[in-house]
Design a protein around this nucleic acid. Structure first.
Lengths: 207, 207
DNA sequence: GAATCAATCCCTTTTTCGGGGGATTTTTCG
DNA sequence: CGAAAAATCCCCCGAAAAAGGGATTGATTC
């Protein structure tokens, strides 16, 4: 079987090193390169034409989401696997929307990386969803509700600590309107008060 | 010269691998262990008595700040170097307050790691302060207030969306007490309501 | 043209929160 | 031991939010 050509993109040399180490212990993998950012990655992709790109989601400059979009557009044959820490899980859905084929947590084991590569190679989606950290304080966040632009606007202002009437003044509507948006937000996020709302919104990276 | 005994603590195997690799290329370093969490780290410290502990700041369970505090208390001779990504800069000052001797960004190069170790070994502070990320969208948050354990507990429950009286039942105290803690939290975070409180707490990684 | 949805506005009642005071009792630590 | 910090408890009051209704307008979509 041909080896899988893999390119890794991450702005942390340490992660790059670790990933390199792990990949080099997987027999069917041939590492075509390690990039410390999205721009150099694009060049390396052109030069090396890897089969799979494993990329960090949050990086300075072009982030993983944009990188994925560009790869999928310019090289539809190349698969992308997103890497993340638990802090940025809200970005995962964006990656998937942009055509990523899977995602890995940065605390993934060699076995999981291997599995991800094999799964993606077979044109299937790999979702590293074995959330074993129920007792670690990192609870998972659910789907991000679809918010209207007005709701997002109000949510931001609520998070800033403004009251309904203060928000009303700012966006030139009646306090009743703001209150309606607030209620809709509570409903959409399925929470009972502002505290829960902001916590969830923060977890989803909305505030 | 005697080799420096170094212990690395991080919950991401990948970072651990990368760090191991980098350290193994530094001649004067002897790696005494790699821990994937603060608790196992404490055991390894007792067993191995390293000279320097390099620890991630944000980890599930006991975080780097607490770990540093414990190490400095129980083993004053051991130096601690904090590791962080740009997201957690607010925690850095806390680490320093707790007696950390320096900090490294996770995108540090081998040279910087070497420099950090040498600097710290000579009882000086190493600050990796080449801040080039002004345009990366990672806004800084202010200092994290020092919270008592009870306050943290209450903060968590507030974030979960419980009311004062619900929290009171859960932790077997009077609602008045919970309210006091809540007010103290508002004061410490310098915010006027729960929304602002939770937003800040989330930014500081407390909820 | 009917239906949907976003955005707007209105009202009442109950509960919770926020701000302002206190005070006492444990813990912790030098 | 003795001071300081943490944790506990108490009261009042006004403001804000939550929960429950409902209604209208305009744009888009089927």
């Amino acid at each position: 079987m041909d080896k899988l050509k893999v390119l890794v993109v991450d702005d942390h040399p340490m992660v790059l090193e670790g990933m390199h180490n792990m990949l080099s212990r997987i027999s069917f993998v041939s590492i075509t390169g390690m990039s410390n950012g999205a721009e150099p990655a694009m060049e390396q992709i052109q030069a090396e034409m890897p089969d799979i790109v494993i990329t960090d989601i949050s990086m300075p400059g072009m982030n993983g989401v944009e990188l994925t979009a560009r790869i999928r557009k310019e090289y539809p044959g190349i698969k992308v696997i997103a890497m993340s820490t638990f802090n940025e899980r809200s970005l995962i859905s964006q990656m998937i929307e942009q055509g990523a084929s899977g995602y890995l947590l940065k605390n993934a084991s060699r076995e999981q990386i291997e599995e991800a590569l094999l799964t993606v190679k077979e044109n299937r989606l790999y979702m590293n969803l074995d959330l074993e950290w129920h007792d670690t304080g990192h609870q998972q966040v659910g789907k991000t509700p679809v918010l209207t632009s007005r709701e997002k606007e109000v949510l931001l202002l609520i998070a800033e600590g403004f009251t309904n009437s203060q928000i009303a003044e700012k966006i030139f509507v009646s306090p009743y309107t703001v209150d309606s948006h607030r209620k809709n937000l509570l409903t959409k996020f399925e929470v009972g008060n502002t505290a829960g709302l902001i916590k969830l919104a923060a977890k989803h990276g909305l505030v």
